[in-house]
C-alpha cells in the first residue's frame, strides 16, 4: 500500500480491496460537524459476460502525486470536511471495486460536487491504464480513453 500526504485528504493506491464502511467511518470519526457525505465506488463490469478480469497498470509515485494534486484542487474549491480517494491496481474481477472517492462537507452540494469532480479528474489525469482479460482466455486490448471523459472533466 502506498499513500501520499495531502493535509485534509486520504489518498491510497493499493492492490487489495477496500472497505467502504470502514473508510466512511474514518472520515466521520470523532466529529459532528459533517452534514453530508458522498461515497462513490467504481466497479469492474463483466461487459456482458465476456470479461474475466481487468488488469490495471499504474505509474507508481505519479499516481499518488496526481491524485494528490486533484485532491488539493478539490479542497481549495469546496468547503470539505473530509476527502478520500483510493484506487486499486492489479487484476480485478467483475463485481469487484476499483476506485473509491469519499467527500464530506457541512452541506450536501459541496460533497456531491467534489466527489463528481474528483472522479472526472481522476479518470483523465491519474496515470492508470486498463486492459481486458477475456473469459475465453485471451488478453484483450488496452481500453481506449473516451472523449466523453474529457468532456466530463472540462465541465469543471
Amino acid at each position: 500500500m502506498q499513500g501520499r500526504s495531502v493535509p485534509g485528504a486520504t489518498i491510497r493506491i493499493q492492490r487489495d480491496p477496500f472497505d467502504v464502511p470502514a473508510e466512511t467511518a474514518r472520515v466521520t470519526a470523532g466529529r459532528a460537524d459533517i452534514g453530508g457525505i458522498v461515497a462513490f465506488t467504481g466497479l469492474c463490469r463483466d461487459e456482458g459476460g465476456r470479461l474475466r478480469a481487468l488488469e490495471l497498470e499504474h505509474y507508481p509515485g505519479m499516481a499518488e502525486d496526481e491524485i494528490g494534486r486533484v485532491a488539493q484542487t478539490a479542497l481549495a474549491r469546496w468547503p470539505l470536511l473530509g476527502l478520500t480517494a483510493i484506487h486499486r491496481f492489479g487484476m480485478i474481477a467483475p463485481g469487484e471495486d476499483i476506485v473509491l472517492v469519499i467527500a464530506a462537507s457541512a452541506h450536501r452540494r459541496a460533497a456531491f460536487e467534489a466527489a463528481d469532480f474528483m472522479m472526472d479528474y481522476l479518470k483523465t489525469r491519474a496515470p492508470f491504464w486498463k486492459r481486458e482479460h477475456l473469459i475465453d482466455g485471451t488478453t484483450g486490448a488496452w481500453v481506449e480513453s473516451k472523449a466523453e471523459d474529457d468532456a466530463a472533466a472540462a465541465r469543471w
Binding site: 481522476l122 492508470f128 491504464w129
Partner: peptide, 10 residues
C-alpha cells in the same frame, strides 16, 4: 521522462 497512452483509470 515517462511515455504512456491517454489514461483509462477510475
Amino acid at each position: 521522462i515517462a511515455f504512456f497512452p491517454p489514461m483509462t483509470g477510475g
